[in-house]
């Protein structure tokens, strides 16, 4: 008897994605229809266009996913769908589609928080079952929309997720993108900055970036200062694509370092605060989201973990950006299958 499958649906932003997973986390299919090109002329995601594209792609992707997995409808025993946070019109396409399917099949829906999708994504593998989850893991979700650290306690489909900090202004990925745009690099800016940074040398005397600290000793992130500083420094030093390549590379290296310096500063604060508590420390640290694809960060966090004797979990690059495999997987971790009639999409959660 083959394992029952969970169908995952993700439409919270600008990628329509459908996946089929087995109960042990084996990803049978994970299809993504990206809309990046559709939004490029507008310099950012247009919510109405995203919603239109989702409806166009959703059901063809569902049908293709079943065919590619060699699965029948009767193999599916639940549906996990992103119910928020995200663009409300975009979310509603996935949620309504999932509701129709689940009600028609007579199976439950698991409404998944998009961030919980990212949190568990480092445990997914390309082949075979997922990596076993530890009792406690510290998770960093770093993407174009989020910069947060979570205290996660998985446990037999009833995981507990507590947000420790968040960004007070811009997200780290957003900062990469906005500064990249200013210096004339194409969207998405993160990979472009990384590419130039690899060819340069960080030079903090020439490019002095601040590390934001709050008077209340909060471990929250704040990236708007670095963004404003980067734009000012780029203007001063005439950093622009097509200009002085050496200066461009050094600028990118220094800017990227500044972003990650704040990340490790906060991570250190959170870690030492946890050490002063009486509970058992997390045995693993995981990073997730688009910025988790950055090679420099991946190396540095591995190093960070080695120093502290903590296992570091890095998501495979295919699971860094939005995808339905992580939504289905989070559905398995978070449990709570619900009546398909009562699923509500929310643009903001918590």
């Amino acid at each position: 008897m083959p394992s029952p499958l969970i169908l995952g649906i993700e439409t919270s932003c600008d990628e329509t994605s459908v996946a089929l997973l087995e109960r042990d986390g084996t990803v049978r299919v994970n299809h993504i229809a990206s809309q990046i090109e559709r939004h490029q002329p507008f310099g950012g995601v247009v919510p109405e266009i995203a919603s239109r594209e989702h409806l166009q792609h959703l059901f063809p992707l569902v049908t293709r996913s079943l065919a590619d997995a060699g699965a029948a409808w009767s193999d599916i025993d639940s549906i996990a769908v992103t119910s928020g946070p995200g663009l409300i019109g975009a979310l509603l396409v996935g949620v309504a589609g999932a509701q129709g399917l689940a009600y028609g099949l007579g199976i439950p829906i698991v409404a998944v928080n998009h961030l919980e999708g990212h949190i568990f994504s480092p445990y997914l593998q390309t082949d075979g079952a997922s990596i076993p989850l530890p009792k406690r893991v510290l998770s960093l979700v770093i993407s174009g929309g989020h910069s947060s650290i979570y205290d996660v306690r998985p446990g037999d489909g009833r995981a507990q997720v507590r947000m420790i900090n968040r960004t007070r202004d811009d997200a780290i990925g957003e900062t990469f993108d906005k500064v990249a745009k200013f210096i004339g690099l194409p969207y998405p800016g993160g990979p472009q900055i990384e590419k130039f940074a690899r060819q340069g040398q960080a030079d903090v005397r020439r490019f002095p970036f601040p590390i934001a600290q709050f008077k209340d000793e909060s471990a929250d992130f704040s990236y708007s200062g670095i963004k404003a500083g980067a734009i000012r420094l780029a203007r001063e030093h005439r950093i622009h694509s097509g200009g002085d390549e050496k200066a461009m590379a050094d600028f990118c290296a220094t800017f990227q370092d500044a972003l990650f310096a704040q990340l490790f500063d906060r991570l250190g604060t959170v870690w030492s605060r946890m050490q002063s508590e009486r509970e058992a420390m997390p045995t693993e640290i995981a990073i997730a989201g688009g910025v988790a694809a950055n090679g420099v960060l991946r190396d540095r966090i591995l190093e960070w973990g080695r120093h502290r004797g903590v296992i570091v979990r890095l998501p495979e690059k295919r699971y860094c950006t939005d995808n339905a495999a992580m939504i289905a997987f989070a559905g398995l971790q978070m449990g709570i299958p619900a009546d398909p009639r009562r699923v509500v999409a929310r643009s903001r959660i918590r």
Partner: peptide, 18 residues
């Protein structure tokens, strides 16, 4: 716009499942 998408997505899902 949103209303039309909700109706179409729900009914297409139902019809596909049944």
């Amino acid at each position: 716009f949103t209303g039309v998408r909700i109706g179409l997505a729900t009914i297409q899902g139902l019809a596909l499942a049944i």
